[in-house]
Design a protein around this nucleic acid. Sequence first.
DNA 1: ACAAAAGTGTTATGTCTACACCCATGG
DNA 2: CCATGGGTGTAGACATAACACTTTTGT
Lengths: 249, 249
Amino acid sequence: MNTPYHNNQEFLSHISIDSVVFGFHENELKVLLLELKDLEKYALPGGFVKKDETIEDAASRILKWRTGLDEIFLQQFKVFSSPDRSKDNPTIPIIKSLIPNIDISFYNDRFISIGFFALVEYTLVNPNPDELSIKCEWVNIDDAKNVIIDHSDIINGALEALRIQLNYSPIGYNLLPQKFTMPELQKLYETILGKQLDRRNFQRKILSYNILNRLDEKRVGVAHKSPYLYEFDLENYQKALENGLKSGW
Amino acid sequence: MNTPYHNNQEFLSHISIDSVVFGFHENELKVLLLELKDLEKYALPGGFVKKDETIEDAASRILKWRTGLDEIFLQQFKVFSSPDRSKDNPTIPIIKSLIPNIDISFYNDRFISIGFFALVEYTLVNPNPDELSIKCEWVNIDDAKNVIIDHSDIINGALEALRIQLNYSPIGYNLLPQKFTMPELQKLYETILGKQLDRRNFQRKILSYNILNRLDEKRVGVAHKSPYLYEFDLENYQKALENGLKSGW
DNA sequence: ACAAAAGTGTTATGTCTACACCCATGG
DNA sequence: CCATGGGTGTAGACATAACACTTTTGT
């Protein structure tokens, strides 16, 4: 079988992409990580840029392979370029042992990595490991610690970018299932921000954007009072994206 | 004389840097552009990344060469990667004609460009052209039109990033001389944002950040009532940078 | 019936907006 | 002395923060 790692001559040298894929499940913010073979370390899903595609197309292609999803919300947020990051990359021995005849010089070069973050609906993802990894799985963001190279910096940078993004666009649409409750949306915000928010003030503020429709349905089978279900009002949601949520200056 | 264009084997292939250097003068927002030889086109100051430096160091080195300034406020904001951007790069013929024996294949490769924006104090800059350009000069941002490749996109992206930055940090420090008046600071904000602001509300908001000291001096020799001079309170300014200006959520 | 969570409302506080007035300066 | 811009203040609209009561559900 041909994998991306064989055909390194179709990629641009020195440039890689690493994506922090965020998902939300059971009130926890998760990140998609690969567990590498023979190491007890994790890595971000990443890859390289083909000679005729944009970095956005590359990130999209890579994540389609990892998650099965088309049309992922993706955003570049920072380039990571420390010269040290290319030293002692623990995936190189794995590649060498798995593909003995490979031209390893491509991987031994210095790489500058473009960081993307992605927002996906947890339940739609089919995590798919590659030949370097034993598994691809969701990890709670607080537990995403034992990672290679500077991937910890990349994760932190992505979270920071996500927090800023929260002030400019209504993030929930990409992370939640179609129907969701107000407390679920609030938990999402609280988890991203890492702080508690007032229930009533949160609801008022979110509703003031006019991007949610309350349905005539409630979440049943849950303990205590049944909360209403909401969905995003796509038309107003698009408008809100164009105008931006905050004025600032 | 040896210039960067000769020694292309010391650079990473496929990766370039383009910087949008903002300055503020006579109530206008300016951008530093190079006028290319034999073309009636302008280009952003840019360059390549050495094999052992970060992109931030590269951007800093390149701008030191162009402006004479150390310690420039610099921030990466976006990577530009359209495959088309490497076709018909009008600087390649110039390089070829100026340096006949050069290995042009480096420049003929596809380049992905990392966009930075820089904020500098206009009066401190000594614009310095390179061998490809007849001059390096300040151009009003509205007149920065006749530029090569996608440099127009890069300028627009930088301006957008600067506008967002305005909500997170007090920009004026890097763009204004040490002493300045409130109307000057306001004009800077108005120019960046492209809209008028209320004089009194602006002053109140800026002062509420507690990052300015009003001096016992006024600008003299100017028509009408003499405005007070202000300077940044560096201690509080640093604090404000750490905490961020806006809470948002 | 009770505990726990959800729906809804109120009040105080602060921030933003839109103005009006007086003052100083150069012409 | 006057036109122009700068310094300062204030009232209303609006947003935010803090908090209380009622309702619904599963147990």
